[in-house]
Protein backbone atom coordinates (compact mmCIF):
# COMPACT_ATOMS: atom_id res chain seq x y z
CA UNK A 1 0.00 0.00 0.00
CA UNK A 2 3.00 2.26 0.56
CA UNK A 3 6.04 2.09 -1.63
CA UNK A 4 9.11 4.22 -1.15
CA UNK A 5 11.38 4.18 -4.20
CA UNK A 6 15.01 5.27 -4.24
CA UNK A 7 14.30 8.15 -1.93
CA UNK A 8 16.96 10.84 -1.45
CA UNK A 9 16.80 13.88 0.79
CA UNK A 10 19.55 16.41 1.36
CA UNK A 11 19.81 19.21 3.91
CA UNK A 12 22.34 21.42 2.18
CA UNK A 13 25.32 19.14 1.75
CA UNK A 14 24.09 16.52 4.22
CA UNK A 15 22.44 13.51 2.67
CA UNK A 16 19.94 12.62 5.38
CA UNK A 17 18.18 9.94 3.35
CA UNK A 18 20.11 8.08 0.71
CA UNK A 19 18.65 5.66 -1.79
CA UNK A 20 16.00 4.49 0.62
CA UNK A 21 13.51 1.79 -0.34
CA UNK A 22 10.58 0.46 1.65
CA UNK A 23 7.52 -1.57 0.78
CA UNK A 24 4.61 -1.66 3.20
CA UNK A 25 1.73 -4.11 2.84
CA UNK A 26 -1.75 -3.57 4.11
CA UNK A 27 -2.47 -4.42 7.74
CA UNK A 28 1.15 -4.87 8.77
CA UNK A 29 3.09 -3.26 11.57
CA UNK A 30 6.54 -2.15 10.46
CA UNK A 31 9.34 -0.98 12.69
CA UNK A 32 12.08 1.48 11.81
CA UNK A 33 15.03 1.54 14.17
CA UNK A 34 18.51 2.97 14.07
CA UNK A 35 20.92 5.14 16.02
CA UNK A 36 20.17 8.80 16.65
CA UNK A 37 20.49 10.92 13.52
CA UNK A 38 20.00 7.96 11.21
CA UNK A 39 17.21 9.76 9.33
CA UNK A 40 14.19 8.00 10.79
CA UNK A 41 12.17 11.11 11.57
CA UNK A 42 13.24 12.64 8.25
CA UNK A 43 11.68 9.60 6.59
CA UNK A 44 8.39 10.30 8.37
CA UNK A 45 8.57 13.97 7.43
CA UNK A 46 8.98 12.94 3.81
CA UNK A 47 6.08 10.48 3.86
CA UNK A 48 3.76 12.98 5.56
CA UNK A 49 4.77 15.74 3.16
CA UNK A 50 6.43 18.13 5.60
CA UNK A 51 9.63 17.81 3.54
CA UNK A 52 9.79 17.38 -0.21
CA UNK A 53 12.24 14.68 -1.28
CA UNK A 54 15.25 15.74 -3.33
CA UNK A 55 14.86 12.64 -5.44
CA UNK A 56 12.85 9.47 -5.62
CA UNK A 57 9.15 8.89 -5.12
CA UNK A 58 6.63 7.76 -2.54
CA UNK A 59 3.54 5.89 -3.73
CA UNK A 60 0.54 5.52 -1.43
CA UNK A 61 -2.48 3.46 -2.52
CA UNK A 62 -1.28 3.64 -6.11
CA UNK A 63 -0.98 7.44 -6.01
CA UNK A 64 2.26 9.38 -6.04
CA UNK A 65 2.31 11.49 -2.87
CA UNK A 66 5.88 12.79 -2.89
CA UNK A 67 5.56 16.49 -3.73
CA UNK A 68 2.01 16.74 -2.37
CA UNK A 69 1.24 19.12 0.48
CA UNK A 70 0.87 17.69 4.02
CA UNK A 71 -2.88 18.35 4.20
CA UNK A 72 -3.45 16.60 0.87
CA UNK A 73 -1.53 13.56 2.07
CA UNK A 74 -3.50 13.61 5.32
CA UNK A 75 -6.76 13.59 3.38
CA UNK A 76 -5.61 10.52 1.46
CA UNK A 77 -5.36 8.66 4.75
CA UNK A 78 -1.91 9.12 6.25
CA UNK A 79 -1.76 10.28 9.86
CA UNK A 80 1.20 10.65 12.20
CA UNK A 81 2.35 11.50 15.68
CA UNK A 82 5.45 13.50 16.56
CA UNK A 83 8.55 12.56 18.49
CA UNK A 84 8.67 15.92 20.26
CA UNK A 85 4.96 16.31 20.90
CA UNK A 86 3.06 18.80 18.80
CA UNK A 87 -0.28 19.13 20.56
CA UNK A 88 -2.53 22.18 20.48
CA UNK A 89 -1.53 22.98 24.05
CA UNK A 90 -3.98 25.81 24.67
CA UNK A 91 -6.97 23.83 23.39
CA UNK A 92 -8.78 21.20 25.43
CA UNK A 93 -8.26 17.47 24.94
CA UNK A 94 -11.66 17.24 23.24
CA UNK A 95 -10.85 20.13 20.90
CA UNK A 96 -7.54 18.53 19.95
CA UNK A 97 -9.34 15.42 18.77
CA UNK A 98 -12.07 17.47 17.11
CA UNK A 99 -9.50 19.15 14.87
CA UNK A 100 -8.66 15.68 13.57
CA UNK A 101 -12.32 15.00 12.80
CA UNK A 102 -12.64 18.17 10.70
CA UNK A 103 -10.54 16.36 8.11
CA UNK A 104 -13.38 13.95 7.47
CA UNK A 105 -15.76 16.58 6.20
CA UNK A 106 -13.68 17.69 3.28
CA UNK A 107 -16.56 18.51 0.96
CA UNK A 108 -18.53 20.73 3.29
CA UNK A 109 -19.78 24.03 1.98
CA UNK A 110 -18.81 27.37 3.43
CA UNK A 111 -22.30 27.67 4.86
CA UNK A 112 -21.99 24.41 6.79
CA UNK A 113 -18.71 25.56 8.23
CA UNK A 114 -20.28 28.67 9.69
CA UNK A 115 -23.49 27.08 10.88
CA UNK A 116 -21.91 23.97 12.30
CA UNK A 117 -21.57 24.86 15.96
CA UNK A 118 -18.82 22.60 17.11
CA UNK A 119 -20.14 22.45 20.63
CA UNK A 120 -23.47 20.90 19.76
CA UNK A 121 -22.65 18.16 17.27
CA UNK A 122 -23.55 14.96 19.11
CA UNK A 123 -22.30 12.61 16.41
CA UNK A 124 -18.85 14.21 16.63
CA UNK A 125 -18.99 14.00 20.41
CA UNK A 126 -19.59 10.26 20.19
CA UNK A 127 -16.56 9.75 17.96
CA UNK A 128 -14.38 11.82 20.27
CA UNK A 129 -15.62 9.95 23.32
CA UNK A 130 -14.84 6.63 21.68
CA UNK A 131 -11.32 7.68 20.75
CA UNK A 132 -10.57 9.08 24.20
CA UNK A 133 -11.90 5.87 25.79
CA UNK A 134 -9.72 3.83 23.50
CA UNK A 135 -6.52 5.60 24.56
CA UNK A 136 -7.76 5.88 28.13
CA UNK A 137 -7.74 9.63 28.75
CA UNK A 138 -11.45 10.46 28.72
CA UNK A 139 -11.36 11.58 32.36
CA UNK A 140 -9.22 14.53 31.29
CA UNK A 141 -11.33 15.49 28.26
CA UNK A 142 -12.07 19.04 29.46
CA UNK A 143 -8.48 19.86 30.45
CA UNK A 144 -6.05 21.86 28.36
CA UNK A 145 -3.82 19.49 26.40
CA UNK A 146 -0.71 21.24 27.68
CA UNK A 147 -1.63 20.45 31.28
CA UNK A 148 -1.65 16.66 30.79
CA UNK A 149 1.21 14.50 32.01
CA UNK A 150 3.67 13.44 29.36
CA UNK A 151 2.37 9.89 28.87
CA UNK A 152 -1.18 11.11 28.37
CA UNK A 153 0.00 13.71 25.87
CA UNK A 154 1.53 10.91 23.80
CA UNK A 155 -1.78 9.04 23.90
CA UNK A 156 -3.69 12.16 22.97
CA UNK A 157 -1.48 12.51 19.89
CA UNK A 158 -2.46 8.99 18.90
CA UNK A 159 -6.17 9.71 19.47
CA UNK A 160 -5.91 12.91 17.44
CA UNK A 161 -4.19 11.07 14.58
CA UNK A 162 -6.84 8.32 14.65
CA UNK A 163 -9.57 10.96 14.45
CA UNK A 164 -8.61 11.64 10.84
CA UNK A 165 -9.62 8.07 9.92
CA UNK A 166 -6.22 7.12 8.54
CA UNK A 167 -5.34 4.00 6.61
CA UNK A 168 -1.67 4.37 7.41
CA UNK A 169 -0.50 5.55 10.82
CA UNK A 170 3.05 6.73 11.41
CA UNK A 171 4.11 6.63 15.07
CA UNK A 172 7.31 8.50 15.88
CA UNK A 173 8.73 7.07 19.12
CA UNK A 174 5.36 6.47 20.79
CA UNK A 175 6.98 4.89 23.87
CA UNK A 176 9.63 7.54 24.49
CA UNK A 177 9.89 8.27 28.19
CA UNK A 178 7.58 5.44 29.24
CA UNK A 179 8.44 2.81 31.84
CA UNK A 180 8.21 -0.92 30.97
CA UNK A 181 4.69 -1.26 32.36
CA UNK A 182 3.44 1.73 30.38
CA UNK A 183 5.11 0.32 27.27
CA UNK A 184 3.12 -2.89 27.57
CA UNK A 185 -0.04 -0.81 27.97
CA UNK A 186 0.89 1.02 24.79
CA UNK A 187 1.40 -2.28 22.97
CA UNK A 188 -2.18 -3.26 23.84
CA UNK A 189 -3.42 0.15 22.79
CA UNK A 190 -1.71 -0.02 19.39
CA UNK A 191 -3.00 -3.56 18.83
CA UNK A 192 -6.59 -2.66 19.62
CA UNK A 193 -6.44 0.52 17.55
CA UNK A 194 -5.08 -1.47 14.63
CA UNK A 195 -7.87 -4.01 14.95
CA UNK A 196 -10.65 -1.49 15.40
CA UNK A 197 -9.64 0.87 12.59
CA UNK A 198 -8.05 -1.66 10.25
CA UNK A 199 -4.74 0.20 10.25
CA UNK A 200 -1.37 -0.25 8.70
CA UNK A 201 1.32 1.07 11.03
CA UNK A 202 4.92 2.16 10.67
CA UNK A 203 6.64 3.01 13.92
CA UNK A 204 9.97 4.43 14.93
CA UNK A 205 11.10 3.25 18.31
CA UNK A 206 14.17 2.87 20.47
CA UNK A 207 12.45 0.66 23.03
CA UNK A 208 12.98 -2.77 21.49
CA UNK A 209 10.44 -4.25 23.90
CA UNK A 210 7.71 -2.50 21.93
CA UNK A 211 9.20 -3.35 18.55
CA UNK A 212 9.54 -6.97 19.57
CA UNK A 213 5.93 -7.21 20.68
CA UNK A 214 4.43 -5.56 17.61
CA UNK A 215 6.50 -5.50 14.47
CA UNK A 216 6.56 -8.19 11.84
CA UNK A 217 9.33 -6.55 9.90
CA UNK A 218 12.05 -4.24 11.11
CA UNK A 219 14.12 -1.89 8.98
CA UNK A 220 17.40 -0.71 10.46
CA UNK A 221 18.69 2.66 9.26
CA UNK A 222 22.04 4.32 9.62
CA UNK A 223 23.24 7.47 7.85
CA UNK A 224 20.02 7.55 5.86
CA UNK A 225 20.45 4.09 4.41
CA UNK A 226 18.90 0.72 5.06
CA UNK A 227 21.54 -1.45 6.66
CA UNK A 228 19.38 -4.44 7.53
CA UNK A 229 15.82 -5.69 7.20
CA UNK A 230 13.99 -8.69 8.64
CA UNK A 231 12.47 -9.81 11.91
CA UNK A 232 13.85 -8.23 15.06
CA UNK A 233 15.72 -11.43 15.96
CA UNK A 234 17.33 -11.48 12.53
CA UNK A 235 18.52 -7.88 12.55
CA UNK A 236 19.71 -8.08 16.15
CA UNK A 237 22.32 -10.60 15.10
CA UNK A 238 23.31 -8.75 11.95
CA UNK A 239 26.96 -7.68 11.98
CA UNK A 240 26.39 -4.27 10.36
CA UNK A 241 23.65 -3.49 12.85
CA UNK A 242 25.83 -4.30 15.84
CA UNK A 243 28.57 -2.21 14.30
CA UNK A 244 26.22 0.74 13.79
CA UNK A 245 25.08 0.71 17.40
CA UNK A 246 28.29 -0.21 19.20
CA UNK A 247 30.95 1.00 16.81
CA UNK A 248 33.81 -1.03 15.47
CA UNK A 249 35.81 -3.03 17.99
CA UNK A 250 39.47 -2.31 18.26
CA UNK A 251 41.79 -5.01 17.25
CA UNK A 252 44.11 -6.21 19.93
Amino acid sequence: MLKVNKLDHCFGGLRAIANFNLTVHENGIYGVIGPNGAGKTTLFNLISGIFKPTQGEIIFDGKKISGCKPHEIAKLGVARTFQNLRLFNDLTVTENVRVGILNRQSNKTWRDTILDYTASDSRQDDIIQRLLDLVGISVRSADKAGSLPYGMQRKLEIARALATQPKLLLLDEPAAGMNPKEVMGLVDLIRSAKREFNLTIILIEHQLRLVEALCEEVTVMNFGQVIARGTLAEVQNDKTVIKAYLGEGEVG
Binding site: S48, G49, I50, K69, P70, H71, I73, A74, K75, A79, R80, F82, R86, L87, F88, N89, D90, L91, E95, R98, V99, G100, L102, N103, Q105, S106, T113, I114, L115, D116, Y117, T118, A119, R160, A161, A163, T164
Partner: peptide
Protein backbone atom coordinates in the same frame (compact mmCIF):
# COMPACT_ATOMS: atom_id res chain seq x y z
CA UNK B 1 -18.45 28.73 17.67
CA UNK B 2 -17.68 27.37 14.22
CA UNK B 3 -15.39 24.58 13.17
CA UNK B 4 -13.56 27.17 11.08
CA UNK B 5 -12.61 28.91 14.34
CA UNK B 6 -11.26 25.65 15.69
CA UNK B 7 -9.14 25.25 12.56
CA UNK B 8 -7.78 28.75 13.00
CA UNK B 9 -6.84 28.14 16.62
CA UNK B 10 -5.20 24.83 15.79
CA UNK B 11 -3.03 26.56 13.20
CA UNK B 12 -2.08 29.17 15.81
CA UNK B 13 -1.15 26.48 18.32
CA UNK B 14 0.82 24.16 16.04
CA UNK B 15 1.04 24.73 12.30
CA UNK B 16 2.85 21.51 11.47
CA UNK B 17 0.45 19.34 13.42
CA UNK B 18 -2.53 21.14 11.89
CA UNK B 19 -1.17 20.40 8.41
CA UNK B 20 -0.75 16.71 9.08
CA UNK B 21 -4.36 16.60 10.32
CA UNK B 22 -5.58 17.71 6.92
CA UNK B 23 -5.84 21.47 7.37
Amino acid sequence: KSSFGLKVKSVREEETAAQTLGI
